[in-house]
């Protein structure tokens, strides 16, 4: 098929591997956006998840709203954020911040819900035993609950990370760079080689993030 040779030609063209629109730059943009937003989401969601998981306070409220939150459509969310961020900063607020904000917003719920469930799911007898041994609440959290809840935390970060990589792709529609650029430009210019190269690169990135977490989870089980 013609498209396949076009794609191979596009991917092996040395020009597509250098410069501001080259694959390394686009990949770096994609990864940077994703890493920043998952890091912010973790910093926000894990402490809150630990708090509500440990104390049981507001658990239903937070989990129910997080589940509703999860259904938020990403493209519309970027659209809603955009007028506000671009009012604050006409440059970056028009191109990068909307996607970044949407990515954080979408990555918080899975991390939060899994952290809460992981902590709350720790056997209450173990927690009581730790208290009986004279551990303080802080020690109970750090030495008993967190280690036992770790697999759940990683599962939450995994679904957050997959979501974030996908949303970073959408950001290309709004000029935030990343590998999605090849999809947007390829379709607009009917450049089939570029389009499919974009598909291959974006799918490979999403699947390797997912695959990386699968491996991490297997290693942790041992």
């Amino acid at each position: 098929m013609n498209v396949i040779t076009d794609t191979l030609a596009w991917l092996t063209d040395a020009n597509h591997w250098t410069g501001p629109a080259g694959i390394p730059t686009r990949l770096a943009e994609h990864l940077a956006l994703s890493a920043v937003s998952i890091a912010v989401a973790i910093a926000l969601a894990i402490p809150i998840g630990i708090y509500i998981g440990h104390t049981g306070r507001y658990a239903r409220l937070v989990v129910n709203s997080a589940n509703l939150w999860r259904a938020l459509p990403s493209l519309a969310l970027i659209g809603i954020v955009l007028p506000f961020t671009s009012a604050i900063d006409p440059q970056l607020g028009f191109k990068v911040y909307p996607t970044l904000v949407a990515m954080v917003v979408l990555a918080v719920p899975p991390v939060l819900v899994n952290t809460q469930a992981g902590i709350a799911g720790v056997d209450r007898d173990l927690v009581e035993a730790a208290r009986a041994m004279g551990m303080r609440e802080r020690q109970v959290v750090r030495q008993v609950e967190l280690p036992l809840a770790l697999p759940a935390l990683v599962a939450g970060i995994r679904s957050g990370a997959v979501q974030v990589v996908a949303t970073a792709t959408l950001g290309a529609i709004f000029g935030s760079g990343g590998l999605g650029r090849y999809l947007v430009e390829g379709v607009a210019q009917r450049d089939d080689g570029m389009t499919w190269s974009g598909v291959v690169l974006v799918a490979a990135l999403a699947l390797s993030v997912e695959g990386g977490f699968v491996v991490l989870q297997r290693v942790m089980k041992k």
């Binding site: 498209v3 997959v162 990589v165 996908a166 949303t167 792709t169 959408l170 290309a172 529609i173 999605g180 999809l183 947007v184 390829g186 379709v187 009917r190 089939d192 389009t195 499919w196 974009g198 598909v199 974006v202 799918a203 999403a206 699947l207 997912e210």
Partner: peptide, 15 residues
């Protein structure tokens, strides 16, 4: 489900 939607929409355009 893991593949971002933008990529799936674009994937069929050449075909």
């Amino acid at each position: 489900y893991t593949i971002p939607s933008l990529a799936l929409f674009a994937a069929l355009v050449p075909v």
